[in-house]
Amino acid sequence: METINYQNFRIEAENICVDYNGKVALYDANLRLKPGQICGLVGMNGAGKTTFFNALTGFVNISKGKIRINGESLRSAQKDQTIAYVPQNEGIDSQFPISVWDVVMMGRYGSMNIFRCPRESDVQAVKDAIERVDLTDHLSTPIGNLSGGQRKRTFLARAIAQRASILLLDEPFSGVDIRTEKLISELFIQFKKEGKTILLSTHDMIHVREFCDLVLLINKTVVAYGETSEVFTPENITTTFGGISPDFLFGPES
């Protein structure tokens, strides 16, 4: 087991910019996260949340800036299976002919040989991961037959099986049942204890206050970043959402 130095940064994004064919999606964005930290990513639709995730996974190239993961390049972080991405339910083809087991096994692909033949250890990792998200009864169920919450847990299990130390979660709580929500929040507490670093995007402000040590408010660039208690203020939220007051967005605070 690797020892975790809680003082070193897991994620360091410095002045990163992303543009799609000349259209700027994100500019001068900064983020620094340490092991054991949970950070909420908050912004409007089209504010660059998914782009931020895409940049951190290497799915899109940044046009400017620097990303260091554990002090090393993104490329070596990919090779080391350091980062896991848990997509939104809408982000995947739920009609794809594939079972829960096969999806979770995909979390092991990066560390397998070229034919992707599962070893004993891979099978065990997949079993354990599926058990942790409580889907052992659905091993061979096609993902198309799962509920939204079960599907979300399947992809969470894939990230667990991958043994990644950084988890990027796109809307982990959207479209899930109460049971899944409870299970995910319990897993977050465990992940924190294990020293994993979590970045999650959410529309639900209650979740931010509940889970996130830090919050990153973005609108094409960083509006505010810091401890949730300090940064997650009505003024900052209003700026992030283009002048709309948080009262309107979330109802008056009781």
């Binding site: 290497g58 080391d80 991405y85 997509p87 692909y109 894939r158």
Partner: peptide
């Protein structure tokens, strides 16, 4: 045949493929 599983992953979830260094 050689890249059967990688191609399946590529069709299903290219972002995950990229994230794990494929």
């Amino acid at each position: 045949s050689i890249f059967r599983k990688d191609l399946m992953l590529y069709c299903f979830d290219p972002r995950h493929a990229k994230t794990v260094g494929i």
